[in-house]
């Protein structure tokens, strides 16, 4: 069983953290991952930086721009991660945009992910139908779980379809926004979380966008299996470097 699938079976609410690989410094990637695991994080999304990240707000874009300036590339990231499974056992997901993956070669990219011990991919601009028609077989050949996004505007029919081709979790975008836009949830979001929970989908949902502290984490996971924090963690890294990760995670969980 894939590590993501095993983790989803644990009887707890999951905290997943996103960070941009190569930020703040090019070679911080491995120590950030190790520290996140030690701090009690359940799952990590490693952001492969892209020059034009359409779905991201200013915080993640700025970290991506800096990471690229620092020299991050697909090949560098794979090299940094080559021994990661000797020290880290929680699920690792690479999150990135489709063009760098396409240039590396989708098959080669997936093969490398398997060799390293990456468990899944999140590629926001790889459309569901293109994945299903052209790349699903490749992902499955290398044991990779592809994670799809849904939003408050996604139709019920489309959610059912996405559920039918998912085999891990569904990334539930909390509101119509790019990353890092807002924090905290109102009734509108809570109703949406509940509406999706009531659909009794095969795949559990993990909420992303707009989670930054214990309060928003608790709200997001009232109906969902877990939550993802990205921009708030990047801001923490910007202010504190990679030293006090445990403190950041403690504040979310307690």
């Amino acid at each position: 069983m894939n590590r993501i699938q095993s983790k989803l079976q644990e009887d707890k609410k999951l905290l997943s953290i996103y960070f941009t690989a190569g930020y703040p410094n090019l070679n911080d990637t491995v120590s950030i991952i190790q520290n996140l695991e030690k701090s009690g994080v359940d799952m990590i999304e490693i952001g492969l930086p892209f020059s034009d990240p359409l779905a991201d707000g200013p915080t993640i874009q700025a970290s991506s721009t800096q990471a690229l300036k620092n020299g991050m590339t697909t090949e560098v990231l794979f090299n940094q991660l080559k021994d990661i499974r000797q020290t880290v056992s929680i699920p690792l997901i690479i999150m990135g945009y489709f063009n760098p993956m396409l240039q590396y070669g989708v098959d080669a990219f997936c093969k490398k992910c398997q060799a390293i011990g990456i468990d899944g991919l999140i590629i926001p601009d790889l459309p569901v139908d293109v994945y299903n028609d052209q790349y699903k077989a490749t992902f499955e050949k290398y044991g990779l779980i592809n994670v799809f996004l849904i939003t408050p505007q996604t139709s019920e029919e489309r959610i059912q379809f996405i559920d039918s081709i998912s085999n891990g979790f569904i990334y539930m975008v909390s509101s119509a926004s790019v990353t890092g836009s807002s924090s905290g949830f109102g009734d509108e979001q809570t109703n949406y979380f509940k509406r999706i929970a009531d659909m009794n989908l095969d795949n559990p949902q993990i909420v992303g966008f707009g989670i930054s502290d214990n309060k928003s984490f608790t709200q997001a996971t009232q109906y969902a299996k877990g939550a993802i924090i990205g921009s708030a963690f990047i801001k923490h890294l910007t202010s504190n470097g990679s030293d006090s990760i445990t403190g950041f995670v403690d504040n979310i969980l307690n």
Binding site: E75, Y97, Q103
Partner: peptide
């Protein structure tokens, strides 16, 4: 080279690594 920019697969100027230049 062939790649993706602004939601479309087309020819675009990019680095070897797929960053748009």
């Amino acid at each position: 080279r062939e790649g993706i920019i602004h939601g479309s697969k087309t020819l675009l100027m990019q680095t070897k690594d797929g960053q748009i230049t």
